[in-house]
Design a protein around this nucleic acid. Structure first.
Lengths: 152, 152
DNA sequence: CGCAACTGAGTTGCGCACAACTGAATTGCT
DNA sequence: AGCAATTCAGTTGTGCGCAACTCAGTTGCG
């Protein structure tokens, strides 16, 4: 009797993934409270700290989020004074998102976060890298399968 | 220069976890469409198929969900005719959740799902088990760290 | 017994995620 | 040039996930 095909909850990798993801998010909630950011907002800030002045579309592609999620999120970041949003002159459909001074400054309060999270995970650099690789492979495999099942 | 401490998005395991979790959920969305269930609803049904007639509190402990999430979810399952909810006689605070006939019958439509998901993940039984183990370890480690940081 | 502390489920409010849609701007094709 | 198809951001509606709260019911302690 193999595990595959079982409907038992604890057999399922997906539940492990779901639990792990929620556990990590809830740790981020604690850590990010001081920066007044949610985890998805933090992801957007990370993307902007890495490269400023991006189109909403580009952020969406990098984070795999659509405008339905990003638009209100970016409005909240703008309301918090962390980013500016400006329509692009040469293509009025696009909106360019850039860091305000406060948004740039916030980076200093964030530099210690990856170490805290890494520490909490209790993995060495090699373990982190391996898991990261396996998760990426999993994501790609699952996404390919889903797209085959139900084409975008 | 180590990876730890980097604010680069692609270095972060958490983003991999977040992406993988969303990818899996979105595959479930396609697969579960035929059963008219969301992924969290499916988790509750799994728990009930495994053992029927449970208190809301017990379901919450198993799935790590609080009443704020479970109460409306269970009301929706009840509205869909899949479960019954009854106040326990000897402790009027507790609510017992049990499968209706339709809820029991739905299991037959679900038996093939784990294989589909397993196939989509492209891992053999050993790979699944190992990843499952590592994710469980990660979850526990992260939860312990969070509770130390911000005691419940 | 009496009453304070606690427990269990539910509600409210907020922020994702995502589908479905809108509307304006641009592109492409004839 | 003209117009259909596409693109981009934003809006609407639904369902989590979680904090904070309410409220009834139960427990525990003097």
């Amino acid at each position: 009797m193999t595990d595959t095909g079982s409907l038992r909850l604890d057999d399922q990798l997906c539940f492990g993934l779901y639990s792990a993801s929620r556990a990590v998010t809830s740790l981020y909630r604690v850590v990010l409270a001081e920066l007044d950011l949610t985890y998805p907002q933090y992801l957007v800030m990370l993307a902007l700290w890495e490269r400023d002045d991006r189109l909403v579309k580009e952020l969406g592609a990098e984070l795999n989020l659509d405008s339905g999620t990003l638009s209100p999120l970016l409005k909240r970041l703008e309301a918090a004074g962390l980013v500016d949003r400006t329509r692009q002159a040469d293509d009025e459909r696009s909106v360019r998102v850039s860091l305000s001074d406060a948004g740039k400054a916030l980076r200093e309060k964030a530099v210690g976060i990856p170490d805290v999270i890494g520490e909490a995970m209790g993995l060495d650099a090699a373990g982190l890298a391996r898991m990261r690789r396996e998760l990426d492979r999993l994501t790609e495999s699952v996404n390919a399968y889903r797209e085959a099942l139900s084409p975008a």
